[in-house]
Design a protein around this nucleic acid. Sequence first.
DNA 1: TGACATAAGTTAACGATGTTAAGTAAAGTC
DNA 2: GACTTTACTTAACATCGTTAACTTATGTCA
Lengths: 213, 213
Amino acid sequence: MGVLERREREKSEVREKILDAARELFIREGYEGVSMRMVANKIEYSPTAIYGHFADKEDLFLQLCHEDFLRLAGSFNQLAQIADPIERVRQLGTAYVEFGTKFPNHYRMMFMTPHPRVIDTPEIEERMGKGNPEEDSYEMLRQTVAEGIQAGAYRKDLTDPDLVAQTLWAGVHGVISLEIAKKEDNWVNWCPIDERARIMLDGLLHGLLRKEQ
Amino acid sequence: MGVLERREREKSEVREKILDAARELFIREGYEGVSMRMVANKIEYSPTAIYGHFADKEDLFLQLCHEDFLRLAGSFNQLAQIADPIERVRQLGTAYVEFGTKFPNHYRMMFMTPHPRVIDTPEIEERMGKGNPEEDSYEMLRQTVAEGIQAGAYRKDLTDPDLVAQTLWAGVHGVISLEIAKKEDNWVNWCPIDERARIMLDGLLHGLLRKEQ
DNA sequence: TGACATAAGTTAACGATGTTAAGTAAAGTC
DNA sequence: GACTTTACTTAACATCGTTAACTTATGTCA
C-alpha cells in the first residue's frame, strides 16, 4: 500500500512550500518583519495550515536555521581535508565570514538572538537526523585548534583548546555581527568587510601563535 | 511666572517615571518582552500617557540606550588621561567589556540590533544635547589608535586607524555578543567571560603591535 | 456499496500588541 | 466668567500568534 507514502510525500511538499516561502520572507524582512499570515498568503493557504507542519513561528524559523547550520557545516566539512591545522583554522574563519555576509538575516537569528528554547527534543532530533550541525561545527573548530596546540603551534601559555577556539570564533563573529548591526551607522568610516575580516584573522592568529611562526 | 517651569518640571517627573519603569522592565525582559501596557501599569498611568512623552516604543527604548551610551562615554572619558595609547586602548577594551556584561539587555539593543531609524533629528538632538556619545566613544578609540600608530607602536603595515579601531572593537564586541546570544548553549564548554575577554585583547594587541613590544 | 475513520485544511475567534482618535477635566489666561 | 491649553483617559483599530470547532476529501473495511 503506497498510499501512506504518497500522502506523506504530499504533506512534505506543502511543508517544503512553507519553508521556501518563509525563507524568502525571513531573508528579506527579518524575523519580526514576517507574519504567519504573510507566509500563508504567499503559498495561498490559510494561516492555520502552517500549524499542521510547524509548532509555531519560532519552530518554523528554527527549521530554516537548521538548514543553514547544515549548509555551514557542509562548507566546513570541505575543509576537513586540509592537513595544516593553522591553515585549516584560517580557512574555517573565512568560510564563516563568507556565510555571515551571504545570509545576514539568518546569521542574525542563528548567532545574534538568544534562543531560550531547547531544540533537542526527541521528536525534532528524529526529524532532523542525529547530531546538531551547530555543535559539530564548533567541535570541528575546537579539534582543529587542539591539533595546533598539540603541534606546538600556539603560544605555550595557551593550553586550553576551548579558550582559543572561543576567542577565534568571537573574533570573526564580532566582525560579522558588527557589520550586520551597525553598517547603517554612517558616522563610522567603515572599512570593507573582507579587509576587516582579514585583519582580524591575521591579527588574532599572529597574537595567539608562537612568535617563531 | 514660574508656572511654566513648574509644569515642565511636573511633566519631566512623569517622563522620568516612565524611563525608570521602562528601564527596569527592559533590563529584566528584553525589548520584545515588554509592552507599553506593562510600562503604563507599573507607573499607574494609561498606556496612551506614554505617547505624550515618547513618539513610540522604539523611541522610548532609544532614550534609554542614549542614557547608557552616555554612561559608557563617561567611563571612557575617565580613561582619557592615560598617557600611553596602548595602555589606554587596553583599558578602553576592558571598560567596554565591563559595560556589556553589566547591561546585557541594553547592550543587545545598542549593539546587536539594527536600527534603521535615524536618531539625529534636530528635535532629538536638542533634547539630548549636542553630540552623539556613541560617536564620541568610537572617535576616542580611533584617536587612541591613531596616537599609537603615530608613536610607531603598531605593525608598520597597519596605517589606517579606522581599520585597527574597527578590528579591536569587533574583537571585544564578539566576546560580549557571543556571550549574550549563546551563553545558554551548554554544548559549548564556555570559558569564563573575563578570561575570554583578556585573551581576545591580549591576543589581538600582540598580533597588531610591533613584534618588539 | 455504504457506514466509519483519518487527516489536511478551512473559518472564526481569542487575547494581546502598538498606536491613534476623540473626549475630559483641571489649570492658567484674558 | 468665557476661552485655550495641556496632560491625561477611554475606546477603538488593525495586526499579531495561536487555538477551537468545523468541513471535506480520501481511504478502510463490513
